[in-house]
Design a protein around this nucleic acid. Structure first.
Lengths: 130, 130
DNA sequence: TTATATAGGTACCCAATGGTGACCATTGAG
DNA sequence: CTCAATGGTCACCATTGGGTACCTATATAA
């Protein structure tokens, strides 16, 4: 039996410290990124819209998150040369392929929050908890 | 037509700043948490094992991540009163329900890294990039 | 003419986070 | 007697995250 290795990717392994996948995971396994991608999964959004929708994001963090996602090819940014400025963000096809996963993360959180909250209470009530 | 609202959860919405789901997302949408959950999906692991498997985690961060996941009921911790100590970590059923999602995040990273790297190169090569 | 709101971005500053290394407890082995 | 082993904590420091104030340019209102 012959193992056919048709241009197998060079054994990417996110558990290796220097693997570039680690950086990508770092970027998408992020609170704000998850919320941003989830939002954009509903369609193109303007910056200000997103700022309002995602309660608690500062302008800076939103910008930063979007830049990072843009760099990774997950969202695309479209600037209209108007005054005041108008900037639209959209998921790229790559981003769309990620959106489902990220959305299921969000859904999991919303579905299992009761269990989690109960567990937290039990944990915090342990005698050795301060 | 009657809308039957059989104890519908009180409209959890992770986009609200104060929604408890936000904290949960904060905890699981985390680089180290994803790696930890992925590892434990392969079965029970000892602390030292995980420390070696996940390159680059400091002892402190691993402890912290595991505590946080334990508090949320995602992993369980078992201490053996031996010398030297032996501590095992396992995914709870709740954790197992999350593992699939988290694993697909990791798989996505490893599958799409080439596209992402290419996108990063294009982005960094823009004239306006410093 | 001047003031103001707009919408997105950035420079600067501070607080929180994460990493490092020392230290601890306990016991069997050398 | 000393050291290795294992998981954990603590104090310290560098790095980062995150907030605030400011900037831009124009259309509109006063």
């Amino acid at each position: 039996m012959v193992t056919i290795e048709t241009k197998q990717h060079p054994a990417w392994d996110v558990y290796k410290a220097t693997c570039p996948t680690r950086q990508v995971l770092d970027c998408i396994a992020d609170k704000w990124a998850v919320l941003v991608i989830g939002l954009l999964n509903g369609g193109t959004r303007r910056f200000g819209e997103m700022r309002k929708s995602i309660e608690g994001v500062s302008q800076k963090m939103l910008t930063q998150t979007l830049r990072s996602l843009e760099r990774d090819g997950i969202v695309s940014r479209r600037v209209y040369a108007s005054v005041p400025p108008k900037v639209e963000y959209t998921l790229t096809p790559l981003g769309q392929s990620l959106a489902g996963i990220v959305e299921s993360l969000r859904v999991w959180s919303e579905s299992n929050i009761e269990v989690v909250l109960a567990s937290q209470q039990t944990y915090d009530a342990r005698p050795e908890a301060e």
